[in-house]
């Protein structure tokens, strides 16, 4: 891969981050809502400050956040802050910064995302490949069908159904939360098991909701590839069925599948975020949910930007993986 291509990909990454940050900067400023005023208005209702004090407080806060400066100056400062991953302070959990809030919830989200995405991608790809492979045994080809039928079901709804049937009706698994009420997080085996028990349903919701998509795209690729001359040639050369499946068929179908993964990252992450909210796992999704309920704008914007940057970064990294998978790109 030449330096020019690398530079182009990096420039693209920077442009995506810049576009997202600019949208997130300007949209709230077009709206008449004032985050700080609303927050203090709420405090005033519950705490009983006098209105005059509130105005002074708001003014000093706005000065502290730099909201009294000209818009363009604010914008430059904001872009500088983004580069340093500084998203400001949380309004509802004040001494904490947005970065703290994200840092606290991130491990949960990464764990859930990594396990579910890898499992559903691998499972979907293998099932899709088998379902389109004419030499696979009949029962193996039908295994994928139920997953295809589930494609239209968003993970959140899958989560609700699982909650109802497995959590509520059968009472096999807990209805939400990260661990049982009353347990204190520690490194013991019982706590770990309890933790895992609470992760099963959200993970299952995400996997069942997304396997079908991978099955469908892989199946489509598989059907296209079967008609190709090189597959016919391999067959006539007398290669074993397994060899053709692995080296001629799976290998060639894998590249568009990885491209699909890069394109689907946004959906994958947002689904995970919303499913987390549904099950009340203490990840980014719940942090976002709480921030929306508390009108904690810096946290909402910070989380949105952080996820966007993370996705853009992952997509850029995946672009660098292609040459490893496809010699045509490597030599070009």
């Amino acid at each position: 891969m030449s330096i020019r291509i690398v530079a182009r990909r990096l420039l693209f990454f920077v442009l995506v981050v810049w576009a997202a940050s600019t949208i997130v900067f300007f949209i709230p400023r077009l709206s008449p809502r004032n985050a700080i005023r609303e927050r203090f208005g709420e405090l005033a209702r519950t705490g009983g400050f006098s209105p005059g004090d509130i105005e002074k407080l708001i003014a000093s806060m706005q000065q502290q956040f730099g909201l009294d400066k000209p818009l363009l100056e604010q914008y430059w400062q904001y872009l500088g802050n983004i580069v340093r991953m500084d998203f400001g302070y949380s309004l509802s959990r004040y001494p904490m910064t947005v970065t703290d809030v994200i840092g606290q919830s991130l491990p949960w989200t990464i764990g859930l995302l990594l396990v579910t995405t890898v499992l559903s991608f691998v499972l979907g790809t293998v099932l899709g490949a088998i379902s389109a492979w004419p030499k696979a045994p009949g029962w193996m080809r039908t295994v994928a069908t139920p997953f295809i039928l589930l494609t239209g079901v968003p993970p959140v709804i899958m989560g609700i159904l699982l909650l109802f049937f497995i959590g509520f009706r059968l009472n096999w698994l807990p209805l939400g939360g990260a661990y049982s009420v009353g347990l204190v997080p520690n490194w013991s085996w019982t706590f770990f098991l309890d933790l895992m028990e609470h992760q099963i349903l959200p993970a299952l919701a995400l996997i069942l909701g997304s396997v079908g998509g991978w099955v469908l795209s892989m199946r489509g690729m598989g059907i296209t590839i079967q008609g190709e001359d090189y597959v016919n040639f391999a067959e006539h050369k007398g290669l074993t069925s397994q060899r053709i499946f692995r080296d001629y068929y799976l290998r060639n179908a894998l590249l568009p599948q990885v491209t699909g993964l890069a394109l689907a990252l946004g959906t994958v992450v947002t689904s995970a975020v919303i499913v987390e909210g549904l099950f009340g796992l203490p990840g980014i999704g719940t942090a976002l949910n709480l921030a929306i309920r508390a009108n904690d704008f810096p946290v909402i914007y910070g989380i949105v930007l952080f996820i966007t940057i993370a996705i853009a970064l992952l997509m850029t990294l995946l672009e660098f993986v292609y040459p490893l998978l496809d010699p045509r790109i490597r030599n070009n």
Partner: peptide
């Protein structure tokens, strides 16, 4: 189009909807 495509649309919608009264 290419620059806007990787941005997770739902999250930007969250910002827009959250900014509205």
């Amino acid at each position: 189009c290419q620059i806007l495509t990787p941005i997770p649309v739902l999250l930007i919608q969250v910002v827009v909807a959250g900014s509205l009264d």
